[in-house]
Design a protein around this nucleic acid. Sequence first.
DNA 1: TTTCGCATGTAATGAGTTACATGATTTT
DNA 2: AAAATCATGTAACTCATTACATGCGAAA
Lengths: 182, 182
Amino acid sequence: MSLRFAILTLLESDPGSGYDLMRHFKAGIGHFWNASHQQVYQELGKLNSEGLVEFEVEHQSERPDRKVYRLTPPGQSALAEWRLQPVRPPKVNDALLVKVYGGLNVPPAQLLAELEEHAVLHRERLEEYRASEARFLAMTPEERVPYRLPYLTLRRGILYEQDWLRWLDEARVELEQMAAGS
Amino acid sequence: MSLRFAILTLLESDPGSGYDLMRHFKAGIGHFWNASHQQVYQELGKLNSEGLVEFEVEHQSERPDRKVYRLTPPGQSALAEWRLQPVRPPKVNDALLVKVYGGLNVPPAQLLAELEEHAVLHRERLEEYRASEARFLAMTPEERVPYRLPYLTLRRGILYEQDWLRWLDEARVELEQMAAGS
DNA sequence: TTTCGCATGTAATGAGTTACATGATTTT
DNA sequence: AAAATCATGTAACTCATTACATGCGAAA
């Protein structure tokens, strides 16, 4: 339900095309909001027909045309109103933990292997986030100003990945003990 | 897509009704899997028509009848096969972080208030999980055996809530600084 | 020559939420 | 008298994923 507000939030500071949004979703806020391009294009269509965003077609030679979207005043106020409403923490549905929960019926070596795959993934993400963090920290205090809040959300991503790695470690130790028959 | 496997996992060790499953979802694995009763009843219907679960009606005087579901052998093997397939970490869509990201356009006091509401929620959950943990830790090593893996998933819930509280603290400090104009 | 980046979409299906629906018993 | 617990479900709708679809230019 809040995909539209994620889109409006991004367009508010940075008008752009659906494609731009996608890159932004992947690079900038992927650690707390995920959407496919199909979803984004469809939602942009809806937002446009509801008058919350508008676009100008940008013709480009030797490149496909771009529709550059921006907020309309009604879009601005819809966003402002949404921000006044409380939101709930997202519901988590994590298949890996379902496997661990029923793990007595899984070969231990395989479960350990899958945990390690996840650890690799989390390490990779953490590296990416740390690289972004380093870019922020290299800025002067003045340069940082507009990025302070995005940086805060990045911090959430960093803590999240570190926390997962901590748990994966705990889990590995425990599963190894169990596999060793203790 | 894996709701069915969450259900099969629960029924594997504990045959029960849709209602029982719901309580189990809420009390036992709510920190990593969430489903509404409508979803559960519908999925049980599908699983039954596909022959992965079966049920016996339990008549009760002065209480509605219960359909007690259990895995069938095909259900067992479907679950075993799923466990061999790798799963991906869940995608996160967190509206609160969308608000923080665009937080320059939100009154700071309000944003801080909402963060505090979330902190309360996370503290409450952490308390519940800690209570469950205490019950586990009060057991003798022998009693613990069948609960070691569920306990591991509980640990994930505990770390998760602690981690959120840590971040909410960071965020509060930063937002207060920004509000103070520094 | 295959893949990557750019740039946009539709259609079908699956997953999840909200609303509607019933009805007895027990607790507050 | 109202709310919570037990116990089950249907229907409508919205949200998200997967598959399908196109087409050029640049890089590997």
